[in-house]
């Protein structure tokens, strides 16, 4: 690594698919060993990676499983991390409905049936995304490029890009597991405030995902220089 690092940002392309796959998988784990598509759907990480690759190549916007809505941060041209963003409900359907359709189309039927068993638990942690909000989801920095503030820089750059593209945007929101304290600290530092919190008191939830609580943090887009 050279002493002078050039940090840049760019829209993801199909060539970045490997880091996007890692980003989505590692973001799902939220720093834990629990991979929800394994625990809830019974899909191994390797199999999920294959399925997700097919989905990403469809490049269907308005939800987090697509290529074009990811912005990459690069260090000396090397991809160091990525984050997805979109405007909720800007198409025909909500992001959760689009993702549901993609799951129905690409996931094995037995996986969907298995997930139904856990639906009552997962519903307790569900926080609806608000139509018209800029949504951030699936952010990740590769281990070798951590401890340089890249996640915060990437988010600030995404907010700036999206606000320039859509000046009427007012609010950015992000859902995050409460156990992911490192991410929470970064989001707070760049102005996000917890607005909604959901908790599942059933201890079984901790067999599926890393936390019994999820929060939705929001930040105004009217004061990007603060």
């Amino acid at each position: 690594m050279s002493d002078v690092e050039k940090i840049s940002f760019r829209q993801a392309t199909e060539k970045d698919i490997d880091i996007l796959l890692s980003t989505i998988i590692e973001a799902d784990k939220s720093g834990s060993g629990l991979f929800s598509f394994d625990t809830c759907f019974g899909i191994s990480e390797d199999r999920f990676r294959e399925i997700l690759k097919e989905i990403l190549l469809e490049d269907i916007g308005g939800q987090e499983w697509n290529i074009s809505d990811f912005i990459l941060v690069t260090v000396n041209e090397i991809p160091a991390g990525a984050f997805c963003s979109w405007i909720e409900g800007s198409g025909n359907q909500s992001s959760s409905m689009i993702r549901g359709t993609l799951m129905q189309h690409f996931f094995p039927q037995e996986a969907l049936q298995q997930a139904k068993k856990y639906k009552h638990l997962l519903d307790e942690l569900s926080i609806e995304k608000v139509p018209g909000h800029l949504i951030l989801e699936s952010g990740y920095i590769t281990p070798e490029f951590r401890s340089r503030g890249l996640l915060g820089k990437l988010i600030v750059e995404i907010l700036r890009i999206r606000k320039a593209q859509h000046p009427d945007l007012k609010i950015c929101s992000i859902n995050v597991l409460k156990s992911n304290s490192q991410a929470l600290r970064i989001y707070e530092k760049i102005g996000f405030i917890t607005e909604v919190e959901r908790t599942c008191e059933n201890p079984e939830i901790l067999k599926l995902i890393a936390s019994k609580s999820r929060v939705q943090m929001r930040r105004s887009l009217d004061n990007l220089n603060q």
């Binding site: 359907q93 909500s94 959760s96 409905m97 993702r99 549901g100 359709t101 799951m103 129905q104 996931f107 039927q109 969907l112 997930a115 139904k116 639906k119 519903d123 569900s126």
Partner: peptide
């Protein structure tokens, strides 16, 4: 539409389509 039915979420959507 999905907005009119409380139970119409992403997982039920997949089951309904099937």
């Amino acid at each position: 539409s999905a907005d009119d039915v409380d139970e119409w979420d992403s997982l039920n959507h997949t089951v309904m389509i099937v």
